[in-house]
């Protein structure tokens, strides 16, 4: 049997995704980011409890430019994962399933995470 030539167009980067899909994808991306942060967080936790000097060095480390930027990325991941996760739990409970409310929920997640990142950013650099 000859294979039929069907148009297959699944380049996700060329399909304009609705906001709900973006929030869903970002939930995965932020989850993977948070996973990558786990060993680092465990290391810093271990360091912070060993001695007063080590605690001070952890605080000092977190005030360096690059770790601060990394920390802000983790805060974004945490905020997005948390807010999008709450949205998914509400969807499990049949809240926000219909198209208008699903889109509204997605926007609320984005607004909430922007507020958290902005407040943290201001707190970090001012």
């Amino acid at each position: 049997m000859r294979a039929r030539q069907r148009p297959v167009y699944l380049n996700l980067f060329q399909i304009r995704q609705p906001i709900t899909a973006m929030v869903s994808l970002a939930h995965r991306v932020s989850g993977v980011l948070l996973f990558l942060a786990i060993p680092y967080a465990a290391y810093l936790l271990g360091l912070s409890v060993t001695s007063s000097e080590a605690f001070t060095s952890v605080i000092g480390l977190l005030q360096q430019p690059w770790p601060k930027l990394l920390g802000l990325a983790v805060i974004w991941g945490l905020a997005h994962h948390l807010f999008a996760g709450i949205r998914f739990l509400l969807i499990d409970a049949d809240i926000g399933v219909q198209k208008p409310s699903a889109i509204l929920g997605a926007w609320l997640v984005i607004v909430a995470e922007i507020i958290v990142v902005a407040v943290s950013g201001v707190g970090f650099w001012l």
């Binding site: 786990i38 060993p39 967080a41 465990a42 290391y43 936790l45 271990g46 912070s48 409890v49």
Partner: peptide, 14 residues
């Protein structure tokens, strides 16, 4: 491995 290692590291600290 990463998760168990990190988890044990954190438990040790606690």
């Amino acid at each position: 491995g990463t998760l168990l290692g990190s988890g044990l590291w954190a438990f040790r600290a606690l």
